[in-house]
């Protein structure tokens, strides 16, 4: 797992510190980007096995813009993405009676903030395994 590289794109530095330390304890190699622009640059230059993506950044839901960019890139869209979202984004826009779990990418999985450490590790592990399985299928 020491060679498994994860990237977090989230604008909340304290939050990033939190999940980073959970993941590092589990021996993942973790990088962080604090805004969508740095995040996209990091994704293009580094070879990441999984992305943890925040939705509410910048002027609003700029995480969605990141997801759309990833979706357009044939290589990046193969990468599993764990969308970590807080109830804050459901506050203003939610249409009553509708679920707040959008599917933005073919690979994504959603986790609510605040994140339970065990659940985080479980989801990361299962997404990585699923991606590895797909790679083998393709090979």
């Amino acid at each position: 797992m020491a060679n498994t590289k994860l990237l977090i794109i989230d604008d909340d530095p304290d939050y990033v510190d939190g999940i980073k330390s959970i993941l590092e304890k589990a021996k993942y190699q973790v990088d962080a980007a604090y805004n969508p622009k740095d995040g996209i640059e990091a994704l293009k230059s580094g070879n990441y096995d999984l992305l943890l993506l925040d939705i509410m950044m910048g002027r609003g839901a700029e995480g969605v813009m990141v997801a759309r960019k990833i979706n357009k890139d044939p290589k990046l869209r193969e990468m599993p993405v764990l969308i970590i979202t807080g109830i804050r984004e459901q506050m203003a826009f939610l249409f009553p009676g509708q679920p707040a779990h959008p599917r933005l990418l073919p690979t994504d999985e959603l986790l609510e903030k605040p994140v339970d450490p065990d659940l985080l590790l479980e989801k990361v592990d299962s997404l990585l395994k699923e991606a590895a399985g797909k790679k083998e299928e393709g090979a």
């Binding site: 604008d11 990033v16 510190d17 980007a33 604090y34 622009k37 740095d38 950044m57 910048g58 002027r59």
Partner: peptide, 20 residues
């Protein structure tokens, strides 16, 4: 990798769509 942003940078990140 990116270092932890200061409060000033956090506010600047919140204006990202206008490129800071």
């Amino acid at each position: 990798m990116a270092t932890k942003p200061t409060f000033r940078q956090e506010i600047s990140n919140l204006l990202y769509a206008s490129h800071g």
